[in-house]
Structure formats: C-alpha cells, structure tokens
Write a protein that binds this DNA or RNA. Structure first.
Length: 576
RNA sequence: CGGGAUGUAGCGCAGUCUGGUAGCGCACCUGCUUCGGGAGCAGGGGGUCGCACGUUCAAAUCGUGUCAUCCCGACCA
C-alpha cells in the first residue's frame, strides 16, 4: 500500500476530550473519529487492526469447534418480554417502534435471539454439543460512555453461545472456550490474566474474565504469587480465620471527642487500626438494612455483602437511616445496643479479633475491650471484605496475593438453564424424554481489545503495535521520494517483495520531510521500519529498525526483506 | 440519574470578569527557499461565537431556558 493512496489523517495535537492514552492515540493516529458520544467511525487504519483481531478470534473459535453465524442487530420486544429482560434491562436497552407500532430494541447481547434459534432448531441430543458465534455490532445505551473504544455505546463484540445436554457436558464446552480465549490473547502478544469473576446480571453459576494488564484498567484483580489462583477483587475470596481466644479486657466506654474515622480513633487511642472494627450500614434500597463489620484496616466488598444477603441492589445507608438504627451519627457506630432489627454480618477476619474497639452508638464515644459473643452477637459470619495486596491466597498454603489493574476484554459464563428454562429450549434425550438445554455464553470486546493493546503497548511517540494486531507489519519510508527516483524505485521494489512474501507493507512515498514521516510512522506504531534513500542508497544499504526500540541497522535490501519476513513469521505464526 | 466543568475556524486555545472592529497557534490553499525526527518567509481562504428567548442603542461577553460534550460515582465486552 502506498501511503499517498491510503488515508491516515494524523493529528499533531491531542483532542481535549480524550482522557486515556489509547483514546488519544487512536484519535491522533487517525484510527477512529467520533460521531456522537460513545459512537465512532472506524477509519481505514483502525479498521485494519480491528480486522486483524477479528481474524485471530475467528480462527481460534473455528479451531475450538464453534460455528459462525450472524444475528440481527434489531430485535423484537417479544423475545425480551419472554426472557423477562424487557422489564429488567432498564434504559441501557435502546427501544423503539416500527411504523406498525411494534416494539423493537437494538441488541445489547443475543441470548434471546440465539435461544429462540436453538429451541426451534436443536431438538435432539444428537445435535449437541453445539456452539454458535458471531462477530457483530452491539448497542448499549451506557449511562456514561468514555475512553473511546474502551467503553463505547456502539461496539463490536464476538459472542458465542454453547448448547449442551447436561451440566457436565456444558463444563466441557466452557473449558474449550476458556482454552480458546487463552490462545486468542496469547496470539495477540498481550499480557493478560484469566480471573475468577462475579456473574453479574448475566447470571449463571461460574465465570472467568480475561483481563489485559494495564495501569489504566478499570478493574482491580488479584493473583497468587505461588499458585494459579487469580480473581477479580469483586470476587476474590478472603481466608477464614481461626476463632479468637476469649477476651481478657473488660468492656469500657471511652470518650473519643471528634474522632470519627478509623485512622483518627486508632491514633487517638494509640493502637493499630487492625484492632478496631469498622461498622457500616447498608441498604438494598427497598427497605432492607444490614450492618457489616470488618477489621479496621480492611474494606467492605459491597458486592460480596449483596450476594451474601441475596439482595438485588446495595448502597450505603444515609445519615438519617443510620441514626434510626443506632441513635448515633456516622463515626461512632458499633454493634452494641442497636435500635430495631438489623442483621449483623461480620467478616471472617472479625471473628478472629479479641479486645477490640468499636463505636458506642453515641456521639464522641467508643468502647474498648469489646469481644464477640460476650458483648454482642452477630447474625452470621461471612467473607465480605475486599482482599488486597499481601493477603494470603485462598487456594494454596503460603502464597500471597498481588494486585494488578486490568481491562476486561473477555468474559466466559456458565449460564446453566437460566435462559433455556425461561424460553422453553428443550430437547429429547436418548430415552425420548424432554430435557432442558444447558447453555454457556462467551464474549470478547473486539474494539476494546484493540484499545487495550494500545494501553499496554505505547510510548511518548505513539503506538507500538504487537505484530499480530498491527495495521501494517512494516513501513518502507522513502527519503525525498518525489525527487529521488532511484530511492522510490528501490522502495517500491522492497514493498513488492514484502507483499509477495505475505508481509503487509506501507510504502511512504509522500512529498514530506523525513522527520515528518518518521513522526507519523512512530505515531501509528508500525512495528518494523525500513528507510530507503539518502547517502546509504549509494552504498547499496537501507536502514532496518524496530518500533519497539533497539539500534538502527544498515543492511542490504535483500537482508532487510529477510529480516522483516522472519520477524512477521515469528510473531504471527506463519504468513498467510 | 446525582455532583463538577466546558461549548469561539478542521484541531488546540485566548477573548467573557469590566458589553462596542472575532483573535492566536497548528492544519488547509498559492509561491519561493528548505529537505534525516512534526521547516522558514510571504500571501490567502475559512467562524449563524452550541441553540432559543430576553435585557440593551449595541451581546461571544449580562440573564433565563435548552441541547451537546467531557470529568467524578452506580453498569459492563
């Protein structure tokens, strides 16, 4: 491809509405342009990277036995009413009517459509296992789209749906997808982790998220430094503590004027934060309340508490609500002397504490020498805290957890029978008995993965593409291309040789100064670069350089072609 | 939806407080020079100042409303 006949509108300045690096660089490199909040045009260069990733996903899905189809973007309301999600989904589901006043939505996901298909077409155990996938544009009317392709409203997603005869067969389908996902992100050259995750609103029994590690990631994840355990912090398990020894100290009320936070109280009483209990009150927003107790230096994991209580929603109680249950303003809360019926949930770590400090439910007062059982009782003990760096691993002896930031690029779910039951997707087994189909669903954010690759691979000059995702493998920059006919001819020859070898080359034949061209190629992040022209031309040499760094080398044109071809073969597993 | 901010040329911004000729840099067009890390000089084109209503002799500037965009929180590939 000649640069002059392609279209790469680069920007020297960073658009002011781009917050994260990938968004900034995709705008500057001319890969995307915004048309509305969270809605983008994929420009020619951006589309090439998107297509590269899609192709890798296709190959690995096909290898894993999944079958590609393409479902509609516009979906009839009746399917969503049937699955009950028409009412549940909320404003994120963009709804509208056709000319006949029938209701439709723009598909944010395709469980309904695929389940409808499966119940019509998959009627026998002989047809399973089967797994359908598509790569398709979805629309979710996000409250707050941001970060460019990272969290758009319209976005490209690969989604796959598996159908099996029973739970253990569904587990096998899940494992296949899990393996396929690992291969996909490995092939892209990305640094990632597969972590245990909460299933959220999709539902189901188990799930893993695939996280690309990046400091700008929206999710925190933990991984064990000794074993393979890794999980989203939302899900990461705290370790059950041994029951505490009996307390020694008497219950004593002490004045703590103006000392509201754990840090203030610990400082004031001159004792470690770990010897205090943090008391929090939460609500499900529908009239239910609960008190949560965590060790002073720990943090509550609201999601765990919500799941533990079986609530649909969770939020912190308001000051008025707190006053109602404790008679005290926030800052002096404790589990002793509550007014009214309030479930008290203690974290595992709390059950191992003795002679602790809690608020006295009275302004400027705390208790010391507090002991569970003797001074107050808890409704239940559970894992409700946010785990952190240095915590013990819940799966192995001696391992400790490390914390990373990650970008969720893939998510696999065991759905069980949630959708098949609701929508009557059944089959006949060997004995002619009707059975419910077991499902799994598996998503990959296509645009988000490409953006995540940039988050993980860039420097101050621009993108540094991993070869498998690069829009072009190699730049051929011709110096003084419009005047130096010999240089342009050699550049063209190199370009043609590379293309013949299956390498995608971008021949920069523009009438621009060399520095200007170099800046452009650095910005758009082409991994390999050959420079033709200048005084090296007379010596029969060209320059070869990696975008990722390292020294420039002077080589013969043939050697340059060989080096580039070898690099592409090594990174992309053979040139197609 | 709550809190904060911003809308002025394709992009980045100044001007708004204190009402009176709409400006700067980049990009774009023409010419000359230049040519290995986003060149220099000269000339040029391009703006209903987000939109509406109001105040005023006069509004980018003041007021009200509205829309859009961005940032911080709850959702998710």
């Amino acid at each position: 491809m000649r640069y002059s006949s392609f279209f790469i509108p680069t920007l020297k300045e960073t658009p002011s509405d781009a917050e994260v690096v990938s968004h900034q660089l995709m705008m500057r490199a001319g890969m995307i342009r915004k048309i509305a909040a969270g809605i983008y045009t994929y420009m020619p260069l951006g589309l090439r990277s998107i297509r590269k990733f899609e192709q890798i996903v296709r190959e690995e899905m096909n290898r894993a036995g999944a079958i590609e189809l393409l479902m509609p973007g516009v979906q009839p309301a009746e399917l969503w009413i049937e699955s009950r999600r028409w009412a549940q989904y909320g404003k994120e589901l963009l709804r509208f009517k056709d000319r006949k006043e029938n209701e439709f939505c723009l598909g944010p996901t395709h469980e309904e459509v695929i389940t409808d298909l499966a119940r019509r077409e998959v009627k026998s155990y002989r047809q399973m296992p089967i797994n359908f996938y598509q790569i398709q544009t979805k629309f979710r009317d996000e409250i707050r789209p941001r970060f460019g392709l990272m969290r758009g409203r319209e976005f490209i997603m690969k989604d796959a749906y598996s159908f099996d005869v029973d739970s253990s067969a569904a587990d096998l389908s899940y494992d296949k997808m899990y393996q396929a996902y690992n291969r996909i992100f490995e092939r892209c050259g990305l640094n990632f982790r597969a972590v245990e995750a909460d299933t959220g609103s999709i539902g189901g029994s188990a799930s893993h998220e695939f996280m690309v590690l990046a400091s700008s990631g929206e999710d925190a994840i933990v991984s064990c430094n000794a074993c393979r355990y890794a999980a989203n912090v939302e899900k990461a398990e705290g370790v059950r503590q041994q029951q505490a020894a009996a307390g020694q100290q008497p219950l004593t009320k002490v004045a703590t004027p103006g000392q509201k936070t754990i840090a203030e109280v610990a400082e004031f009483l001159n004792r470690p934060q770990a010897t205090l209990i943090k008391t929090l009150i939460c609500s499900d927003g529908a009239g239910q309340f609960a008190m949560a107790l965590v060790q002073g230096d720990h943090e509550l994991n609201e999601l765990k508490l919500k799941n533990c209580l079986g609530w649909d929603e969770i939020r912190m109680a308001t000051d008025e609500e707190i006053l109602r249950f404790t008679g005290s303003p926030p800052g002096f809360l404790g589990p002793i002397g509550l007014k009214g019926d309030l479930a008290v949930v203690a974290d595992y770590a709390v059950s191992g504490m003795t002679d602790v400090v809690v608020g006295a439910n009275e302004t400027d007062q705390h208790y010391t020498g507090v002991n569970i059982g003797r001074d107050f009782t808890v409704t239940r003990t559970a894992d409700i805290r946010l785990v952190g760096a240095g915590d013990p691993c819940p799966r192995c002896q001696g391992g400790t957890l490390e914390v990373w930031r990650g970008i969720e690029v893939g998510h696999v779910f065991k759905l069980g029978t949630k959708y098949s039951k609701a929508m009557n997707a059944s089959y006949l087994d060997k004995d002619g008995k009707e059975q419910v189909i077991f499902m799994g669903c598996y998503g990959i954010g296509i645009g988000r993965t490409v953006a995540a690759a940039i988050e993980q691979n860039h420097d101050e000059n621009g993108v540094i593409w991993p070869l498998p995702l690069a829009p072009f493998h190699c730049s051929v920059v011709v110096i003084n291309a419009q005047k130096d006919e010999a240089a342009l001819a050699l550049g063209q020859q190199l370009h043609d040789q590379l293309e013949a070898a299956g390498v995608e080359a971008l021949l920069d034949d523009r009438d621009e100064r060399p520095g200007f061209k170099f800046k452009d190629h650095d910005l758009i992040g082409i991994p390999l670069r050959i420079v033709v022209g200048g005084k090296n031309l007379a010596d029969g040499k060209v320059e070869f350089k990696l975008r990722s760094g390292g020294a420039m080398e002077l080589v013969t044109p043939d050697e340059a072609v060989a080096r580039v071809t070898a690099a592409v073969r090594a990174a992309c597993g053979g040139v197609r």
